[in-house]
Design a protein around this nucleic acid. Sequence first.
DNA 1: CATGCTGGGTTCGCTTGCCGAACCGCGCGC
DNA 2: GCGCGCGGTTCGGCAAGCGAACCCAGCATG
Lengths: 160, 160
Amino acid sequence: MVILTPVSDATFDRSRCSVAGTLAVVGEKWSLLVLREAFLGVRRFADLQQALGAPKAVLTDRLATLVREGVLSREPYRAEGERQRHEYRLTDKGRDLYPTLVALMAWGDRYLTDGPPPLALEHRDCGAAVRVALVCDDGHEIGGPREVRARAAGAGAAPA
Amino acid sequence: MVILTPVSDATFDRSRCSVAGTLAVVGEKWSLLVLREAFLGVRRFADLQQALGAPKAVLTDRLATLVREGVLSREPYRAEGERQRHEYRLTDKGRDLYPTLVALMAWGDRYLTDGPPPLALEHRDCGAAVRVALVCDDGHEIGGPREVRARAAGAGAAPA
DNA sequence: CATGCTGGGTTCGCTTGCCGAACCGCGCGC
DNA sequence: GCGCGCGGTTCGGCAAGCGAACCCAGCATG
């Protein structure tokens, strides 16, 4: 007897869910905040540490993970009369996490902050405010989850 | 003397950053996965527990947090000849986290999965695939972080 | 009535992770 | 050579996550 959730859409293989997978990469504490700093242009260990206030050991670990996962790259540089150091910069893979960060920020701006948002994003070309939108490939803008249907990949019969 | 990072855009007050704030609400382990299930229509404790495989105690705690934060509501119900139970359902505040989940999922679909995504989202009206996009209020679609400028709230030309 | 079953938790040890502070090592300027 | 500062690593303590065991209400069964 299989007592699964009675919800039709909910019968898919959680173990390979993309949300879980992404969280396995960037879901640990500090990871997404490191990326926020990266998007703000912070690249050096000391600057990250000061901006975040995270323990050095944790920061070291998070950076190593993000580099290993290909979200950041660790590249040598040397400043005027100093020894060689490394800096951490976003890869294309990392840059593609931008919408996720913006979505998190937008929610916080709306529900956690009163008054103007602490950080405003504007389109470099036209100066207008930037926001995240759900759209479908036919060009419709989507208001919320109710307008969306989820379909599992093995949409025939896949017992878990 | 304030020694902040030399990076121009990076000088804003991290302590009230909306990304950090949002993560304080949904950034703990399992929280976003609970919400994923919620968006799939899973509402009952036992169903959540089975779907996620999280320890009961943690799940209890996450649900309580999400209810306290107003992301979920805890509502009594009673099924045919059973005693009264509670179910957890998304509030509007919770529903507004949908783009965040979709963004996380999209990234995982792209970089973590080969082949078709485990879960496909389609527009209920037209059947076309759903994706998350960055747009500006003038209607331009934005390709990535390079096209965006961040401005701190306290900075010079900030209209209230 | 006593008994058992089931859903929704709570409690209990154990392990893992996070934390701040201390320590270390390399390369540079002196 | 000496000291210094960046970029870590190490260390002890605390908090969170973990699976398993336990608990309690209420319905069903005998």
